[in-house]
Design a protein around this nucleic acid. Structure first.
Lengths: 345, 345
DNA sequence: GTTTGGCACTCTTTTGATTCGAGTGCCAGA
DNA sequence: TCTGGCACTCGAATCAAAAGAGTGCCAAAC
């Protein structure tokens, strides 16, 4: 059953007060701040109901109420109105992003710096994921006899270098031949396609006993293997911001939070979901399976289009973040990033 | 004038006690722990002298003494005996480093992870610096008309990708020609040499009106410019470790320290010095010009040889780090890294 | 002269008691 | 259904006293 209007109004007032103060909210404050014109006593009754329904919590008997994750979820889904981003901020985001130059890594680093600076929260950016991008070109460079560097250029400026050992010694000329063959075969295919065709072609080459093709394909395979998902890296900026939040004032909590931020795999998991789903998401602590995050809120948004590089950016902060103001920041940055990448690539 | 033996013994005892407890040390404790067999009262006299000489400090009248930076400097230079690294640790470092594969970035990340795990301090690694490495090969790849990706492979597996815009439109064939010419000209020269010859050759080409050479050289120049020193990146691992140190228990200090760790340029400055000087260094807080670091100690060691890639690794922690145990860890890791890179490249 | 025990003194930390204030829950009356 | 009133609870702030750690100095002992 949906929440009656009055209770919802009270809850909203409490949430918004809590977002700004981080302190438990009492009935007096609600009575003054809400537009209902009710006395503290009436508010108390409503608050008692809300507490029973699981929207509020009391740290102890004689403290105010604190909104629960459930309350925040309701607020996000049904009540909150995003506060439009000031034009000045939009311009700043656009120009700063453009000023980062043409290197993908630089652009992403700039985005994360921008995001953390604008939000005073922790920003994170995950670099584009592989499977949907297209093979542009492969190159081999002979470092030593038996040691080959592969340079794989994907559409959108994504470059992966790998050094691999070859079983047989190869010459620089051999490598040119291999590269030509592979580029001919794979250019403009997606990485996923290449993966599967690689196997098929290798079988074919083995069947026809074509040694050149076999070697070339083996080399390409070596360039691809050992390359599980963590190919994408996570950029974090403004980690010290979160330490100023009053909820993390105890040393123990600070350490815990910093450990989460250092453990990139957790962040990757969070961001990866939105990078594939392609829509912005706000996640509140206890909603994730990861219990390390219970006290944290996460705003994420994907960037990039189907054709270009594709990843996600996000903010991470205390559960009581100013979502109304920050969701637009994240979304706008993501779309600015998308436009920029589209234009370049 | 050098410190008399007895005073030095007392000072050493105090320092070592302070390293393990992080608490001011009193005369009773020194009397029991030192091998001098003196009563607390005598120790008190000695401690008064040491305080006057600037080796000790009292937080307040009725607290024990705390060693000053001057005391730590003396300890490091004249007293400390490095505790040899257990064979088990040595083996672990060697195998873990080898397991990182052949990619330079992976190896360095592994080194930093290893270092922070073994020391429980913050590890940092700076990737090799440019000027002394040799040009191996340049490659161009046409992304769009007017947009060229340059792939510069340096000796030692160092690869830099840059995307540059060309004033004139070029074809893929043009690019192959440019690359051949440049590789012919510059292979096995150091980056510094290339920089200066680039200018000379460009003048020459302008004089002789050789358009092809001119374009090729302009392209190479574009690949080099906008490439100041921060080409090297700093990897930091175990940042949360430092937050467990009792000296950083206040929220304000924690934030301050984390900000330093996030501000990579400061770390770069620290590491860069040892990377060029080529010898291990221990720096104590107030010895640097950077007053943000007054409460921190830094152990750094260079890795790499003159011919190969060359950078530095280090640990950063509270001033009262266990230098005797940690200096060998840093040094051994650096030399293991050197051996590994020498073997590969 | 060096060392030592003794002792007064200083300053922090801890403890306990008390008070204060914010907030609640409940009830009776409008 | 709302409101004012009131007793109650519990944390936070305040204060005083006591405990504890350590010092500095002195006079006696070696």
């Amino acid at each position: 059953m949906p929440l009656p209007d009055r209770e919802r109004e009270v809850l909203t007032t409490i949430i918004e007060a809590y977002i700004t103060t981080a302190l438990p909210v009492g009935s007096r404050a609600v009575s003054r701040q809400s537009h209902l014109g009710l006395s503290p006593a009436s508010i108390r009754n409503i608050m008692a109901d809300l507490t029973e329904a699981g929207y509020l919590e009391q740290p102890h008997t004689s403290a105010g109420r604190v909104p629960t994750a459930k309350a925040f979820r309701l607020y996000l889904d049904e009540v909150m109105r995003e506060r439009p981003l000031p034009e000045a901020h939009k311009r700043r985001i656009a120009t700063m992003l453009r000023s980062a130059g043409l290197d993908l890594g630089d652009i992403l680093r700039q985005a994360s710096r921008l995001l953390s600076g604008l939000s005073l929260q922790v920003a994170m950016v995950v670099s584009p994921r592989y499977p949907d991008t297209r093979w542009k070109r492969i190159d081999f460079s002979l470092l030593n006899p038996g040691l080959v560097m592969t340079i794989l250029v994907l559409q959108g400026g994504l470059v992966r270098n790998r050094i691999i050992e070859t079983a047989v010694e190869v010459t620089a000329d051999d490598l040119v031949g291999y590269a030509n063959y592979l580029n001919h075969l794979f250019t403009d295919r997606t990485v996923a396609e290449v993966r599967s065709r690689l196997v098929a072609e290798l079988h074919e080459a083995e069947r026809t006993l074509n040694a050149l093709y076999q070697r070339a394909l083996t080399l390409a395979q070596a360039a691809f293997e050992h390359e599980p998902e963590p190919a994408c890296e996570v950029i974090v900026d403004g980690a010290s911001n979160i330490l100023s939040q009053p909820e993390f004032m105890s040393a123990e909590q600070m350490r815990e939070v910093m450990r989460v931020l250092e453990e990139r795999t957790i962040l990757l998991e969070l961001l990866d979901k939105t990078a594939t789903d392609l829509r912005p998401v706000v996640t509140i602590g206890s909603e994730t399976t990861l219990d390390v995050l219970t006290e944290l809120g996460v705003i994420t948004a994907p960037y990039g289009t189907g054709s270009g590089p594709q990843g996600a950016i996000g903010l991470i902060g205390p559960v009581r973040m100013d979502y109304a103001g920050l969701v637009p920041v994240v979304n706008f940055t993501a779309s600015a990033l998308t436009r920029l990448l589209d234009r370049h690539f």
